[in-house]
Design a protein around this nucleic acid. Structure first.
Lengths: 341, 341
DNA sequence: TTGAAAGCGCTAACAG
DNA sequence: CTGTTAGCGCTTTCAA
């Protein structure tokens, strides 16, 4: 690695010389500052065009202490998950939220300790104005490392009930409760659930919502009606198959993710059950992939667009109000009824 | 957006003061330069630890004209493709290739003209040392914009036969030829193909390889045996179904991607054909997802790990030898025989 | 409305 | 081996 041909890139100074103005004036023009005579502005712009000038961002951030970039770090050792719709949809949502700003979105992978160290140095080094984190596991120290360094940081989802870092989350318990209440209204009573991995807070919350709904309806939750998955389709299939075998009397299943709901459907059909006449299925829609499941599937919709927007908004607030220790935003989910579950 | 609390972050100067040395010495220590007495080195490191010092990267790149970061830009309007294994595998491969360097990998999305402009300014602004591009469409001006700006740029795949930007590609024609030759050796004669989108060079190359194999075997290629897909599973299914309907005599199918091969398998089975007794299928393995297809499927393996390494290597060469206009590397594919196709 | 000047924090030469 | 110095290219006062 060696310096790119020096002198090749025109500097602000050269633009100023060509336009016959001072450097300050050129700076004002490229930053759209007010108080520049229209004629000089045009002269400067002509010079910029002639030289093909592009501002050096390193110099700009050094002088202006702003990077005009934010990182979206993906901290997932299991790289296969990167391909999942949930991830790409979140990336899209955040990208859309930043679409008409001048802030460059940088996705980074943080899979190992070495990568974590490198990323923290990168972020603390002032190359980004803030960091968005998704898919953070409960034991991950990265959020605290960043927050302690004074970097604006926003999590998607929380690591525990008393997360001490700014986050955006969906109302997981409420959404799950609503789903199960829908089943109850439809006359179902023996409702099982396929949970997410229970070391994740999101999975705990959805399970809690499921139990609350049953309790409120006067039905005592039964551990035997709960089977744990890991948010993959295969786990949904397996967990549902187990559930059915142990409890043929189940007349509905609440799956804590859309992917697992797809697996649940497959398992039910494989077992010769009709859906939903025989057994109804509701999933928690992580990623708006309704078209991949079935039209008869009623789901709880997690508003990823809004989550993306909220993350960006919180990040801006973090930057502007460093006196706030942290803030939390919970977004409402929505029950989407399709078919007659 | 507002400056992060100024003065909050210790500078190299403060470290030097605390350690009682000059700034140059501190710089040497943090850059692992040789020629520093062990005792002073330790003193400096103690000061660094005490202050929690982290180098300011903007200042470093300004002074040193190096960003220590490279961008991997994903120029794909159709964002769904981001979730495909090919993409995530390439990202992983490049990430692995950079794993034990101090170079930070930054993924960026370039979906619109606005994003393209923003990214070019970012890259030209000196925030990255080079750019890797994947999934570049034939008409995309981005590679030329970057290369013209003097930025080291490496494409994954080429846009045409005489690509004038550095790229890494697989031997698509050779791989396809090998696949078809394998079918011929197995006694198949009526071999159809499902091609990729023919406005992409990679699809043209694989089609060419297919035709060459037939020609060499004394079989005249027939347009009617060729059906166009778009690298998706669904298109593979549809194209294969068409092929079979028009030409029930086909005894083998070469699919120009693994995804389409999966679709081809489904179509064959739906049509009641047995695989491979009745009709054999070979796919071009973009993404090493063999486990998702079938054990009986023989594939052409595209070496993504090596492609990632080669891209990184070429990028480094671009940086070191700006006098080379461009360079091309074609990697060998490998026929992986599973089952009896 | 504009020019001049003072840094931003670091690297790299150059003296010692 | 180590301190000093001169920038890197830009933003931002401060005068004019």
């Amino acid at each position: 690695m060696v310096k790119r041909q020096p002198g090749t890139t025109p500097t602000l100074e050269e633009v100023a010389a060509l336009a016959g103005v001072g450097r300050g004036t050129v700076s004002r023009v490229i930053n759209n500052a007010t108080g520049v005579k229209e004629s000089t502005r045009r002269a400067v712009q002509r010079a910029i065009a002639e030289l093909g000038y592009v501002p050096n961002l390193a110099a700009r951030s050094l002088a202006g202490r702003r990077a005009d970039a934010v990182a979206l770090a993906i901290t997932e050792k299991d790289w296969r998950k990167f391909g999942e719709p949930f991830f790409s949809e979140v990336v899209r949502a955040v990208g859309d939220a930043l679409a008409d700003t001048s802030v460059q979105l940088l996705l980074t992978l943080v899979r190992s300790d070495a990568e974590r160290t490198r990323f923290v140095e990168y972020a603390r080094g002032g190359r980004v104005d803030g960091v968005l984190l998704m898919s953070v596991h409960a034991e991950d120290p990265l959020p605290d490392m960043l927050a302690d360094a004074g970097l604006p940081t926003v999590l998607l989802g929380r690591r525990s009930g008393d997360e001490q870092v700014t986050y955006v989350d969906a109302d997981n318990a409420g959404g799950a409760r609503e789903a199960v209440e829908h089943l109850l209204r439809g006359g179902r009573r023996a409702i099982g659930t396929v949970t997410g991995p229970l070391d994740m807070y999101v999975a705990q919350s959805r399970l809690r919502g499921y139990r609350e709904a049953l309790t409120r309806a006067g039905i005592a939750p039964r551990a035997a009606w709960e089977a744990e998955g890991d948010f993959t389709e295969e786990s949904g299939r397996r967990a549902t198959a187990e559930l059915l075998e142990r409890h043929p009397e189940l007349d509905a299943v609440f799956a804590a993710s859309d992917t697992m709901a797809a697996g649940a459907l497959a398992a039910l059909r494989a077992a010769g059950r009709r859906v939903p006449d025989d057994v109804a299925v509701i999933g928690f829609d992580d990623f708006q992939l309704a078209q991949h499941t079935e039209p008869l599937l009623t789901t709880v919709r997690q508003p990823l667009e809004e989550i993306g927007r909220a993350m960006v908004r919180l990040l801006l607030e973090e930057m502007e109000q460093p006196e706030v220790a942290w803030r939390h935003v919970i977004l409402r989910t929505r029950l989407v009824v399709r078919g007659s579950a």
